[in-house]
């Protein structure tokens, strides 16, 4: 049995680049959310994300040193 593949924007995972489809995938419904984007400086932008990843990598160095010390 073969059934039609999902036919909605909601079904398919969106474009990984977050680019072209991102805006079109913005939901049409204006229901309440758990946070108010105007009051919280969140989500972070691309630079902040990179900084976060870099900070984790740097944090790894002392942790790795500790982990192999007897």
């Amino acid at each position: 049995m073969t059934i039609p593949p999902p036919r909605t924007t909601a079904e398919l995972p969106p474009d990984p680049s977050g680019g072209p489809s991102a805006d079109r995938q913005a939901p049409q419904h204006g229901a309440a959310t758990f946070y108010d984007p105007d009051r919280h400086p969140w989500p972070p932008n691309a630079a902040q994300v990179r900084l976060f990843v870099l900070a984790l990598a740097l944090l790894g160095l002392p942790l790795a040193w500790w982990a192999v010390s007897r």
Partner: peptide, 20 residues
Amino acid sequence: APAGAVTSEPVAARGAVVSA
């Protein structure tokens, strides 16, 4: 459980594009 039903547009617009 309506998918994609619980958001508001600004959130999606602001959060979506953190592309590499």
